[in-house]
């Protein structure tokens, strides 16, 4: 652009190429584990054990590895558990957070300031903090080792309330007034007028929530003992620690199975993912 600095075409090309070179080198490091995971999952055990870094498998051994993985660990059940847990958590989170966020954004009610203060404070309390007392309470009610125990600490998402409150706050008051004048109840007003306009924020939060809870390991590791209630990360941990620990081929096959759903979701909905991240930064 700048005439004086307008370097010769060759120099510009060189600079351009250099940037790309660095970016590609970075991309290789970023993607290498994924590539190796996929490649190893279809390699024969003998070839894996011989070491080396030649990427192309000598023979296709995929069916065997995946079959072994599925035989040793019930990945289908892990995935089903993961799907149920993520879906229920997300639905309850939205059902709880949307009215609360609307109340905080647009309605005057006693204690609003205190509640909002607690929500903001709650933002810096991760699950690991209340984990101990929650565990004891669940043990008391004999609820450990079940899907409910997996989900209950996450029903309230202070982050969802915070994010949606910011979104609802930007919703024009005039429209709300107009809807009230038209005789809409607050409940109708919220779900039929305000929420439809918050689509991007809800979608962004949904992505955020599903990713977080599909990938969470800490809490499942605490409350789940029996494999038949394990979500994918816990299943993976069990698998990696079990006797198959040296059978890297099927272990990689397991890793592929566990990571594939979110990776595919990401490739399909990259914009939403990025939006979800960016929204966390715009406060």
């Amino acid at each position: 652009m700048r005439p004086s600095k307008r370097p010769g075409d060759a120099a510009r090309l060189l600079r351009h190429a250099l940037v790309h070179l660095c970016l590609i080198a970075g991309a290789v490091i970023m993607l290498m584990p994924f590539a190796w995971m996929a490649l190893t999952s279809i390699r024969a055990p003998a070839e894996i054990l011989s070491g080396g870094f030649w990427p192309i498998p000598e023979s296709f051994h995929g069916f065997k590895n995946y079959e072994t993985a599925l035989r040793i660990a019930p990945f289908g059940m892990f995935m089903l558990n993961g799907a149920i847990v993520c879906a229920v958590i997300l639905i309850v989170q939205l059902l709880v957070a949307i009215p609360a966020a609307y109340a905080l954004a647009k309605l005057r009610f006693p204690g609003r300031g205190v509640l909002f203060g607690l929500i903001v404070a709650g933002l810096c309390v991760p699950i690991q903090v209340p984990a101990l007392p929650l565990y004891m309470a669940l043990a008391e009610f004999k609820l450990l080792d079940g899907l409910f125990a997996l989900m209950v600490p996450f029903f309230l998402s202070v982050f969802a309330i915070f994010l949606l409150r910011q979104t609802f706050k930007a919703f024009p008051d005039e429209i709300i007034q107009a809807a009230r004048v038209d005789g809409m109840s607050e409940f109708e007003l919220l779900w039929r007028v305000v929420v439809p306009s918050a689509g991007p924020a809800v979608a962004a939060f949904s992505v955020f929530s599903v990713v977080a809870h599909w990938n969470d390991l800490y809490w499942p590791m605490i409350v789940i003992q029996r494999l038949d209630h394990a979500p994918p990360p816990l299943g993976m941990l069990f698998f990696a620690g079990s006797e198959s620990g040296s059978d890297f081929g099927s272990m990689m096959a397991g890793a592929v199975i566990v990571t594939a759903p979110l990776l595919l979701l990401f490739l399909v909905a990259r914009r939403r993912f990025v939006q979800g991240i960016t929204m966390t930064g715009i406060k």
């Binding site: 991309a27 584990p33 190796w36 994918p232 993976m236 990696a240 890793a255």
Partner: peptide, 20 residues
């Protein structure tokens, strides 16, 4: 996409990959 992929991947599974 390339740089963001590790963020979405289940860390525990990727840790197993790194182990290998």
């Amino acid at each position: 996409t390339a740089y963001f992929l590790p963020v979405t991947a289940t860390l525990i599974a990727m840790a197993a990959v790194w182990q290998f």
